[in-house]
Design a protein around this nucleic acid. Structure first.
Length: 176
DNA sequence: CGTTTTTGACCAGCGC
DNA sequence: GCGCTGGTCAAAAACG
């Protein structure tokens, strides 16, 4: 496969946004406290599954297997167990948005609204079943919608030194 | 050799 | 009841 964040500085694609990396860290630590993340950078936008921006992508209801505790279907507006999903709209030409964790692709499906297929990733850490799906809008191929589900409860595999490097890159892009 | 990617099929839920 | 969309699993191949 390709390299990781190393690509960021290697490739001269001039990605406008790479702060995504830091966002993930915050999410990992604070999970639901995504409010502060918002004020971090204007390049990335986080929200709780809005069905207005995404074309029926992250709707509500049947995303994961939740077959055991399936809702009766009667209550459409209120659900007993809500899935903590965070959709990040990242503006980048490359879909290699590595947050420092190891992801294993377990599926790929094409969406009707978009001509681009959606990729499903899963954290390879034992016990950490964090799921993530990446989708790019056919309207704007530079827009990458990454939806994260669950939270990481384990340290990052990558070294802090590496992360520092990432931060450096982030600052550079943030400056623009 | 181990791990991950890839592609197809299968299953579940919802709509009609 | 059937069909559709969406999601996940599984087996094989590719890659390091």
């Amino acid at each position: 496969m390709e390299n990781y964040q190393t690509l960021f500085q290697s490739s001269s694609l001039t990605p406008p946004a790479s702060s995504h990396l830091s966002l993930l860290n915050m999410v990992n630590s604070q999970a639901q406290d995504h409010n502060k993340v918002n004020g971090h950078s204007s390049l990335t936008a986080n929200m709780d599954i809005p069905d207005s921006g995404i074309s029926g992508v992250a709707q509500s209801g049947s995303l994961t297997g939740a077959k055991t505790e399936v809702k009766s279907g009667k209550n459409k507006g209120e659900k007993k167990s809500r899935k903590p999903r965070h959709a990040f709209q990242t503006r980048s030409l490359v879909d290699i948005l590595d947050d420092g964790y190891r992801w294993r692709k377990y599926g790929q499906k094409a969406v009707k609204n978009n001509k681009f297929p959606r990729s499903y990733y899963r954290c390879t850490y034992q016990g950490c079943n964090v799921k993530k799906q990446v989708q790019r809008l056919s309207k704007d191929e530079e827009i990458i919608v990454t939806t994260y589900e669950g939270m990481h409860s384990h340290p990052i595999e990558k070294s802090t030194e590496n992360f520092e490097n990432i931060l450096s890159q982030m600052q550079i892009y943030s400056s623009v």
